[in-house]
Structures are given as C-alpha cells and as structure tokens.
Computed example of a mutant assay.
Amino acid sequence: MPDENADSQKPAEPKVRKLDPHSLRGLAHPLRIRLLGDLRLHGPATASQLAERLGESSGSTSYHLRQLAAYGFVEDAPEHGKGRERWWRPSQDGTSFDEALIYDTDPATRGAAEVFLTEIAKIHALELATWMDDAPSWPVEWRRASDLSDFALQLTAEQSRELVHKMHDLVNSYSDLPPSEGTETVRFHTHAFPRRAK
C-alpha cells in the first residue's frame, strides 16, 4: 500500500527561476548578480548592509535592488523591517541559465548572456581563491570535507548533460536536511565543458 505521507517526506524542490531574454537583461550586471547571490547565501538584508558587505555605496545597492525587484528577482522582507528600514529577500532559491540565450538572434541578449556567464565564472574563481587563503584557519575535519578535483571523461553531449542533471539532483537532495550541530554553509561549484584533443 502506498505511503500517503511519502510526498510530505520528500525534500522540497528548490524554487528556480529560468532566465529568458527579458529577465536575463535585468540581471546581467555584475553588482546585481552579486547582490542576488549575497541575499541567497546570507538571507534578507538592507541596501546599507549589502553595501557594507560588498564594498559599494548604499545608493548604488539601493538602485540595483529596485531594478532586481522590477524584474522579479528580489522582494520586500517586511517581517525584518523596523521603521523606514527596507529589507530585501530573494524571490527564488536559484537561477537556471538556458544555453539557447547564447545563440539568441538579438545581440543585446547575447551580450547579456556573456556578461552573466563571465560574472558567474569570476565569482566561482574568487570563492575558490578565498577558500584557499582561509583553509589553514579551518578545523582539520572541514579541510578533509572540502574538495578540489577535476575529471576527464569520454562522453557524448547527451551523456554529459545526463551526468550534470544527476549531480544537480544529488546536491539538491541535501538542501532540506534538518538543522544539526556543526553545520556550515558549504558551496558546491560544478563546471562541465568539452575540450578538443590537441
């Protein structure tokens, strides 16, 4: 007999926003990408708090947060506000990039896709460099729990796509674990790309 509670026991699927040409153009700005990433990583914040964390002016963060809100990436977090203080939170858990955007007939969309992907690559490189600098200060169990690996596999495009989806599913299966002592925010980056033999 099927378990009636099976669906309630499954981890909730993360709410992911699939980028289209319009939303991509609204997000494809280095500061907007960093603001959205910070809110997703650290939770709700004010423009002033984000400005301090990211080394920007509060006027700049406030403007770009309003732009992100206009495109549906962030929203008010009124439960955090005090008086005139405006708090922001992400509207989704993640963003999905459609590779078709790279080949869009509109040059503005292709340019926005390039800005977006370049900024994501820079953020990944910066996070990795920061970890390498900070690693000696972490306990040995966290050093052993980190990873810096690469693999070269002979795959078809379809097999590579299948493997990427399996990795994403596996990572997402850990997203709703109950809180426990000793947890830290752990960042997982995945990069998969073909290389021609020389």
Rank of each mutant, 00 (worst) to 15 (best):
L148H: 13
L31S: 05
E114H: 04
P194S: 09
E119Y: 04
V115N: 07
R53L: 02
G81F: 02
D98I: 02
K18P: 04
R66M: 07
E75Y: 10
L126W: 06
D133T: 12
L128N: 12
K198A: 13
R32A: 08
L24Y: 05
R196D: 09
E141I: 07
R84Q: 12
G182D: 11
E85Q: 15
T46I: 03
E99T: 11
L163G: 01
H168W: 00
E181I: 13
K15D: 15
L148Q: 13
V74Y: 10
T95L: 15
A28T: 02
A121H: 07
S173T: 10
H29V: 05
I120Q: 11
G59L: 07
K122M: 03
N5A: 11
R144P: 04
D20G: 15
A135Q: 12
G111L: 09
E13V: 08
A47Q: 00
P30K: 01
F151N: 09
A129R: 07
D147T: 14
A28P: 00
G55S: 01
T190S: 08
K10T: 14
M1K: 03
A77C: 02
Y103R: 15
E119F: 10
L41T: 15
F151E: 13
Q154W: 09
L24V: 02
A77R: 03
I102F: 14
H64V: 02
L36H: 02
D38L: 10
K15H: 14
L31K: 01
L170S: 00
A125N: 07
L54F: 08
E141Y: 09
V74N: 05
E119Q: 14
F73D: 03
A152R: 15
Q154A: 12
D93C: 05
H165F: 06
D134V: 12
D3H: 10
D76F: 11
D133A: 07
G55D: 04
G72T: 05
D150C: 06
N5V: 10
R25E: 03
G26M: 06
T105K: 14
S8K: 10
G26S: 03
A192M: 01
V171N: 11
W138G: 06
L24T: 01
W138M: 11
S8A: 15
P139M: 10
P194I: 02
L39H: 02
W88V: 05
A77H: 07
S91G: 13
R161Q: 13
P139R: 14
L50H: 00
V74Q: 07
S62Q: 15
Y63M: 13
T183N: 08
D147A: 14
K166G: 09
R25P: 01
K10C: 15
E119R: 11
A112K: 01
L126C: 08
L36D: 06
I123L: 15
A125I: 04
K166A: 15
S149Y: 08
P2S: 15
E75L: 06
T105Q: 15
T130L: 13
H189W: 03
L126M: 07
P2V: 15
E119C: 05
W142R: 11
G182M: 07
R110C: 09
A100F: 01
A152G: 12
A121R: 13
S173Q: 11
I102P: 00
G72D: 01
V171P: 05
Y71P: 05
Q49Y: 00
R84W: 11
E184S: 14
D3I: 03
H124P: 03
L126S: 04
R89W: 08
A121K: 13
